[in-house]
Design a protein around this nucleic acid. Structure first.
Length: 191
DNA sequence: CGCCAGATTGACT
DNA sequence: GTCAATCTGGCGG
């Protein structure tokens, strides 16, 4: 447990990956910051009116790159952290919108949740330099690791935040913090 | 090359 | 409530 996620985890439909990312851990090894993911949004290919995939260029190319690659989207003076996720030959990425800061070593919360994709990257110390980093590699500075298991019944769905033209289905996924069972888990390995 | 819009945030009227 | 900062790609001249 608590190891990095497998790339195959991300080789599925972005909405399914998004839901399963809730409870997982994002870790910045260099900075020593980490958080449990509590809010995400999937973005799909060109059929998704809110997706940067339809714009082409580097963002669209990155959305089609190796699943588990970081995609850093710069907008309005924020860096937004996404993880590439898609089936073979498709495009997709998951936006990380909320975390609970944790002490990774003892796996305990450090503070109230952080909501807002720009605030998440600011807390974690993620910027453009992490663009295209591979997050399923234990030797990378930025990693995605296993964390808590979240029951599907505890996931709330709503429309994606801040998009003008959204898909008919609600694609914002959240877990309520009080529904997360935090328990002390001894660290089996050092990182 | 200039200008616009967007998956935002925080400061200020 | 309003405004502006800043990154990227599309579009128009």
């Amino acid at each position: 447990m608590r190891e990095v996620l497998e790339p195959s985890f991300f080789r599925r439909r972005p909405d399914l990956v998004a839901m399963d990312l809730l409870g997982k851990v994002i870790l910045n090894k260099r900075r020593g910051t980490a958080g449990i993911i509590i809010e995400v949004e999937p973005y799909f290919g060109p059929e998704d009116p809110a997706s940067r995939a339809r714009k082409g260029g580097d963002l669209a190319r990155t959305m089609g790159s190796e699943p588990c690659t970081a995609l850093i989207y710069g907008v309005h003076r924020q860096w937004l952290l996404n993880v590439v996720a898609h089936e073979e030959g498709e495009l997709g990425a998951i936006l990380i919108r909320g975390i609970i800061p944790i002490n990774f070593a003892i796996f305990e919360p450090l503070s109230k949740p952080i909501y807002g994709p720009g605030r998440v990257t600011k807390y974690l110390g993620v910027d453009k330099s992490f663009h295209k980093a591979f997050l399923c590699d234990p030797y990378q500075e930025l990693q995605l690791r296993h964390g808590l298991s979240v029951d599907a019944s505890l996931i709330t769905r709503s429309k994606r935040v801040g998009v003008r033209e959204d898909l008919p289905e609600p694609f914002n996924f959240k877990v309520r913090v009080e529904d997360l069972k935090m328990k002390r888990i001894p660290l089996k390995f050092q990182c």
